[in-house]
Write a protein that binds this DNA or RNA. Structure first.
Length: 746
DNA sequence: AAGCAATAG
DNA sequence: GGTTCTATTGCTT
């Protein structure tokens, strides 16, 4: 599950006495503004940030889930065990000295009556985790997951809205704690947005508690870094707001650089090599020297982080981008065991994939081998594309998908491990990636339409990544920092695929296939009931009241558009797409699938149809092609081919056709056994020997008949390579294949 | 597109 | 800096 920072962190709010931290507000803010405003063009942001960001962190999440499943565990010391490790435990156990990642043996010494629950199967945790995210999303779609138990939320739009609509904003005070302030009433007048943020945080925590029965902490601040750092200040089931004047305090009190989110082990080692150990060290270190060591983007990011500056957006996570399953063990050294293990792992993974409903395009096998030199760890992996017909079988739940995948897995395995030599594995992982919502990748990569047809998953589509804090000029010139109006091209992607998702979902429910939110087969009832239908607003658009604001241009638009959509870019979009962007799904108003958007709203409540974050499909899709006899065996050999061809991009082969694999330079040295003369050259004898006997016989029979093997060279791929590499070199590096690239002026 | 490193919980 | 079981992003080829 996770590492430190919960128990072993001796906590930020410890030393009250020495708060002469090197930075005071007066120093921090100009510094922050200067650093944040270090863009090449455009004025520096006037206010450093009007954003309001929440961070939620569930209390000892796995333990809470188990205590809900079995309330008798509530009052006993409870530890969640994975292998020989306690990955987390409840507060009763913590009081007795049990900590995260303590060995079971040590934990039993500390707490002899510790009750252990096995936690290797993450199913329930994953399901509950997504329910939390979905619940949060029902209030505001800008929710980013961080692991299973944490969520960020950008509630700037909600706050702005309450600000304009609320009558008595002056006499309100903070909900929960305020960092470094004894009274929540102290500075309330100076920070109306954060006050409202603290109210929203309290409401959301209450909702999580009443609807899901979970408790957790929340942090309220002006960016993700700060929200995360402050949320743990008061520990179980409380919340804390950080005021801008205390940024210096909270950063200064962190102590070691390792405590800064984003600074991991390697980075802290490199920093240490520069003589930097504390956050203050980094704050005061010359930026130019940092750049020399890390390069500009990373250096800027690190330097900013040390100052409490973090311009990174809350990026909606959407459905997961990969599904994987793994198991670790002391020793595995026979191919027989490997075969068995991958089969087990794949069985459950395929089932999960089936429930998800999307179709994986890539399969990856990862191992970890034991070796004295390598110490223990470091993983290696091999991956290969999944042929379309197999992908369809997987997502439609066809029963023979597993066998074919196992064949692929074994093939991939032998690319890493010489079957003839001894080996010692300590872990196997199987993974589906490149998950496509609709059909096979029609690969209309350059076409705008691909953004509508490719991925119907909510949240991100393929690759949205950004470090929007660093690359200043490329982003386009309206960099409204903290106002949600910077040009974040990936948001266009996001938003469009999101809409597509809604359309698809609507179509499907109209067709009588009601997918449930994040349905699990076991959990039928939606624990997250939709919020009251009278309040159909999701208030995260930065704009004010959104009464169709499409007459004017520029600023007018800027205020009505979804966050992060540049008005300049917007104007260049085709009409229909503009309309899409202004439609309720994007600007914040959503409509229920069956409800005609009811009455006059209470001020800000929470409703709107539950967003479909992660909606594994519950009803199996009708299998598109009837399995004919012989399919399986052909598929096995195809699968082997797929795995084989992966490294050598030779002539591609249409599925269903047999090939002779050209033995590339990287091909495994053939271990020729007596019976091998009958194998097609593309079949690994090692794999073959692991197949069930009847499959072996069938395969042999088939090969005999097909002896004249079709070669099928590059006939399909005609104008293959050609130009298409347009490169986009001007914008290279950071820019992806996204909408912005297509509509950007120049 | 593939493989790995780094980071995270 | 490693334990478990994931998941994401960025770098390099």
């Amino acid at each position: 599950m996770q590492t430190s920072d919960d128990d072993d962190d001796d906590d930020i709010a410890e030393d009250e006495t020495e708060w002469q931290s090197s930075l005071t507000e007066l120093e921090t803010h100009p510094a922050a503004a200067a650093a944040a405003g270090s863009h090449i063009d455009g004025p520096p942001p006037q206010e450093t940030s009007r954003r309001v960001i929440l961070h939620f962190d569930l209390d000892c999440f796995y333990a809470q889930v188990e205590m809900i499943r079995n309330p008798a565990l509530r009052n006993v010391p409870l530890g969640i065990q994975q292998k020989y490790i306690i990955v987390t435990c409840n507060y009763v156990a913590r009081d007795q000295g049990v900590t995260k990642l303590m060995s079971v043996a040590d934990a039993k010494v500390k707490c002899p009556n510790l009750v252990l629950v096995k936690g290797e199967d993450l199913t329930h945790y994953r399901e509950t985790s997504y329910k939390v995210t979905e619940l949060l999303m029902s209030y505001c779609p800008l929710v980013e997951r961080l692991g299973f138990d944490e969520n960020f939320m950008d509630i700037t739009g909600m706050v702005e809205r309450r600000l304009t609509q609320t009558t008595d904003s002056h006499n309100a005070s903070f909900e929960g704690h305020v960092y470094n302030h004894a009274s929540g009433a102290d500075k309330a007048g100076d920070h109306p947005r954060l006050v409202l943020g603290s109210h929203i945080a309290a409401e959301l925590r209450a909702a999580i508690n009443t609807k899901l029965g979970l408790t957790g902490c929340a942090g309220v601040a002006t960016n993700k870094l700060l929200a995360k750092l402050v949320s743990g200040t008061f520990k179980p089931n409380q919340q804390t707001t950080l005021l801008p004047e205390n940024i210096g305090d909270i950063m200064g009190r962190l102590g070691g650089l390792r405590r800064v989110p984003g600074v991991g082990h390697q980075t802290s080692k490199r920093l240490r090599a520069l003589g930097l150990v504390s956050v203050q060290d980094l704050q005061l270190f010359p930026r130019a020297e940092l750049v020399r060591e890390f390069g500009s983007p990373t250096a800027q990011r690190l330097g900013n982080l040390s100052l409490g500056i973090d311009g990174s957006p809350v990026t909606p996570s959407g459905a997961p981008q990969s599904l994987s399953d793994e198991d670790s063990f002391k020793k595995m050294s026979t191919t027989k065991e490997v075969f068995q293990k991958t089969q087990d792992l794949l069985s459950s993974l395929v089932e999960r994939m089936h429930k998800d409903g999307r179709q994986p395009q890539t399969f990856r096998l990862t191992i970890r081998r034991y070796s004295a030199t390598n110490k223990w760890f470091s993983r290696e992996s091999r991956q290969c594309p999944i042929p379309n017909y197999l992908g369809q079988k997987i997502s439609s739940g066809s029963s023979d998908a597993v066998a074919q995948l196992v064949a692929m897995a074994v093939k991939l395995f032998h690319k890493m491990v010489d079957g003839g030599a001894a080996f010692h594995l300590t872990l196997i992982n199987v993974c589906f990636a490149n998950l496509q919502s609709r059909g096979p990748a029609a690969s209309g990569k350059g076409a705008i339409t691909s953004f509508f047809s490719h991925s119907a998953s909510p949240g991100k589509s393929q690759s949205s990544s950004q470090d929007q804090a660093s690359p200043p000029s490329v982003r386009g010139r309206r960099t409204d920092h903290g106002f949600g109006c910077d040009v974040d091209s990936s948001y266009l992607e996001t938003v469009i695929t999101q809409d597509n998702f809604h359309k698809v979902a609507a179509a499907e429910s109209a067709a009588g296939a009601p997918r449930h939110l994040h349905g699990s087969p076991t959990t039928k009832g939606p624990v997250v009931s939709a919020a009251p239908p009278d309040l159909q607003r999701v208030m995260c658009s930065t704009g004010g009241p959104e009464s169709d604001g499409r007459t004017s241009e520029g600023l007018e638009f800027g205020c009505r558009l979804p966050p992060n959509v540049d008005p300049d870019v917007f104007r260049l979009l085709p009409e229909d797409i503009q309309r899409e962007l202004l439609s309720p799904a994007f600007t914040g108003v959503q409509q229920g699938p069956s409800k005609p958007a009811a009455g006059p709203s209470r001020v800000d409540t929470f409703d709107s149809p539950p967003p479909r974050l992660y909606a594994p499909q519950l009803t199996p899709r009708p299998s598109t092609h009837s399995p004919r006899l012989g399919d399986t065996r052909q598929a096995v050999s195809d699968a082997m081919n797929t795995a084989d061809n992966q490294t050598s991009p030779g002539p591609s082969v249409a599925p269903g056709q047999a090939t002779v694999e050209a033995q590339g330079p990287g091909a495994r040295p053939p271990r020729l056994l007596s019976s091998e003369c009958d194998f097609p050259m593309n079949v690994d004898p090692g794999v073959f020997s692991e197949l069930p006997g009847d499959v072996q016989r069938d395969l042999m029979a088939e090969w005999k008949q097909q002896r004249p093997v079709l070669k099928t060279p590059s006939c399909i791929k005609q104008g293959r390579n050609s130009s298409a590499k347009d490169k986009k070199s001007a914008v290279k590096g950071n820019q992806r294949n996204n909408l912005y690239n297509y509509f950007k002026p120049n």
